[in-house]
Design a protein around this nucleic acid. Structure first.
Lengths: 344, 344
DNA sequence: CTGAAAGCGCTTACAG
DNA sequence: CTGAAAGCGCTTACAG
């Protein structure tokens, strides 16, 4: 249908080889014929067919992105950043999330073995043996996000949940709270485990005992935070926590919801902190003290590393990088308001 | 590098034509050779090369998605839904947002003329003549989202901002408010204009005069809502509005921010409503009354239409569909709490 | 500086 | 039911 290289060649009275050479700026071409070809191509709105080119060069200029889900600010920010960087390097993004029906493996295989992409960025809850085999046996490079698998075949980027959790726990301790509760994330979840470890070790490092009753498990949802909060509030006053560390902001927001119903005030009645630094935590009152996730940085670095790998920097393979988190102090922890009107 | 059809053919002692036939379930093949081929293909983990296949069939099984930006719940929900439906039909998603450096036209052209996709879903603030020409002159089908251009070459799906605005305005009027202010979105913006029209017409239909001073223009950001709110509050009591309709939730949330600083209570001191139904509006206290955008529906329908177009249902071309919005009543308008503890 | 030709990995009439 | 061959639109040694 659309114009191809033969048509250009015909109109310019040259061979397709010559046309290809000028279009790709490769090999010597007489300036005058170069001009001619360029002009005709422009006039005809010529665009090389990407399939044909890929078939021949084995390059697609496409990056595969596989994410566990496509909900939340988290993934939107990540995609946003991936898109920015990809665009900067002239790459396109083939995005997919894990689905119940078509599992990750299928998608990964289609992307990799089907030759749809030049490389792949994966964030998957579980990278099983089968997937690892696919990744290992494919020449196309891989960047793994927040994954906890052997990775001598891939670049791996992680977020430092552990130290983030320690720092926010430390912050609570510095406020003088001693009975600190934690609402954990779901067991088995990578992020949840690290945050939990960080909390425990910081408590221990400060000689604070952790009352087992003050450790609840949630599932990262608003709802589970809401109920965990209710349970904690119902303890008798000798045990009731002075502060609660929710393993993510969403659960902390569940507590906000309950607090409104019960007329409980943060931080006067009880202090709460979260983890993730989602937008809503900035807006609620009082502002939610939390830990910032370096999502943009994760997006940027993963894309940059992948592109370098694609360009052949093999010495990067096996590289691991841990991105640090940052404490975001607002008011729910007991600090006084640290923003001015207008500072929004 | 990876195994190809020749290798399969060689091992099965058949021609590549036969292999191709069984792989595509096309043409007659003796059951026993079919079995053999299938087995060998499985053993070798064979996967057809997508570029080669596309080059030959002119199909990519890929859908191009071009969005104005990749931030906000709005786009995340949209992408989420597109991904769901695409996956259901075995399609892949090539996603790009508008960029300053590479404009939409470039991307669209690369997707369409470069043969990277079978069809395209576009949501772009401005579809200029040049882009329209590209779309019109390409055989590949197009679905336009919330666009206001002639579209006899594309399916177009819009959201009914106008009636959404009327219904939320009506709701305020039914509460007995007479001096109702509106903080508009940026002029020139499609959604902003429709919402503004809806507001004006509903006011008029109820015989309510609109004081020009009560009409402010924002730019859909938190910040602009914050300042608009401050300005409205500073009016003298004879003019000061009893209720404010913010053209989107984000601006309404700016008002929440200011309200906390100034110790102003919604809806006791002043009622506020928004538009969009973003997550944060559910969490803040009091809950923000707003208008729900049928984003998932938009995503689902646009993908389904596009796939039908790709499959050749030409009679759909030119079809336009307007999706209705829905009033979401919470408490910021003056209604009493309509959710129970635990109902989150 | 340029062109003829092979090849990338597939699909698909066509002939048998 | 099967295979040889052409073709999809490019790139790239190779020869001139």
């Amino acid at each position: 249908m659309s114009v191809n290289i033969h048509e250009i060649a015909r109109r310019c009275n040259v061979s397709i080889a010559t046309v290809s050479r000028v279009l790709n700026n490769k090999g010597p071409v007489k300036p005058s014929t170069r001009e001619k070809v360029l002009q005709v191509a422009r006039e005809m709105n010529y665009r090389p067919n990407s399939s044909a080119r890929s078939l021949s060069t084995r390059k697609t200029d496409t990056i595969g992105v596989i994410l566990p889900e496509l909900v939340d600010e988290f993934f939107m920010s990540l995609i946003h950043e991936l898109d920015e960087v990809a665009h900067k390097y002239g790459k396109y993004l083939l995005i997919s999330s894990s689905h119940s029906s078509r599992n990750d493996m299928e998608t990964i295989y289609e992307f990799m073995a089907g030759g749809r992409v030049d490389g792949i960025i994966i964030m998957a809850p579980k990278i099983n043996k089968q997937i690892q085999n696919i990744l290992k046996n494919n020449i196309r490079p891989v960047v793994l996000l927040n994954c906890d698998v052997p990775h001598n075949y891939a670049v791996r980027i992680k977020i430092d949940n552990y130290h983030g959790a320690r720092s926010v726990t430390k912050h609570l301790i510095e406020h003088g709270y001693k009975r600190i509760a934690m609402v954990k994330g779901p067991s088995g979840n990578q992020d949840a485990e690290s945050r939990w470890n960080g909390f425990m070790q910081e408590m221990e490092a400060n000689g604070l005992a952790v009352n087992e009753k003050l450790i609840l498990e949630g599932d990262f949802t608003l709802r589970s935070g809401y109920y965990a909060f209710l349970r904690l509030l119902n303890m008798d006053s000798t045990e009731k926590p002075e502060a609660i560390f929710f393993a993510n902001d969403m659960m902390a927001l569940g507590a906000y919801h309950a607090a409104h119903v019960l007329k409980i005030k943060f931080p006067e009645d009880i202090a709460v902190v979260g983890f993730d630094d989602i937008f809503t935590g900035r807006i609620v009152h009082p502002g939610l003290t939390t830990v910032h996730m370096p999502i943009s940085e994760m997006g940027r670095k993963s894309m940059e590393y992948l592109i370098k790998l694609i360009e052949g920097e093999e010495e990067l393979i096996g590289h691991e990088e841990v991105l640090s988190t940052g404490l975001v102090i607002r008011e729910s922890c007991g600090c006084t308001q640290n923003w001015l009107p207008g500072d929004i």
